Amino acid sequence: MSAKRLNLIQVYRGLAAVLVVLAHTDLIYNQNLNQNFLFKITTFGGSGVDFFFVLSGFIMFYIHQKDIGHQNQLGTFLFKRFTRIYPLYWVVLTSKIFASFILFDKSNIKDIGIGEFIKAFLLFPQDRQILSSTFLGVSWTLSFEIFFYLMFALLIALKPQFSFPIIIAWLSGVFFHFIGILQLPQNNILLQFVFSELNLEFVLGCFAAYALLSQKISNGIPFIYVGIFLYTLSAIDYFYKFLGVSSVMTFGIACTLLVVGGASLELRKTINVPNLLLFLGNASYSIYLAHGFFINQITKVLKKLPFNIFQNLVFADVLGFLFAIIAIICGCLIYLYIEKPLLTFFKPKAVTT
Rank of each mutant, 00 (worst) to 15 (best):
K40M: 12
L212W: 05
T76N: 13
V49W: 02
V314R: 12
N282R: 14
V301T: 07
P160L: 00
V21M: 03
L131V: 00
S100D: 15
Y89Q: 02
F77N: 06
V248P: 08
R13V: 02
L213I: 11
T250G: 00
T141Y: 01
Y29L: 04
I253D: 05
F293A: 11
G173M: 03
T352C: 07
F195L: 14
I298L: 14
G320T: 07
P341V: 04
F293W: 10
L184D: 13
L319M: 13
V318H: 08
P341I: 05
V301M: 08
A23Q: 08
T83V: 04
V49Y: 01
T232D: 09
H24D: 10
K4Q: 15
Y285T: 12
L158W: 03
G281I: 10
E145A: 03
G244N: 14
I253V: 14
S139I: 00
V245F: 10
N296G: 13
Q311T: 11
L191W: 03
V20D: 02
C255S: 15
I97D: 03
E266C: 11
P125R: 01
W90P: 08
V194A: 05
L276D: 08
F79G: 03
L78S: 02
I68K: 03
I179E: 09
L343N: 12
R268W: 06
A209K: 02
H70P: 09
L305F: 10
T141K: 00
F117Q: 06
L190H: 07
F53W: 05
V245Q: 11
K300W: 05
G75C: 11
G220C: 11
Q126W: 00
Q215W: 15
T250Q: 05
I130Y: 03
L258G: 01
G261F: 01
S100H: 11
D26P: 04
G262K: 00
T134F: 10
H70G: 08
F124L: 08
M249H: 10
S132D: 14
N272T: 14
V314N: 13
F39V: 12
P341K: 06
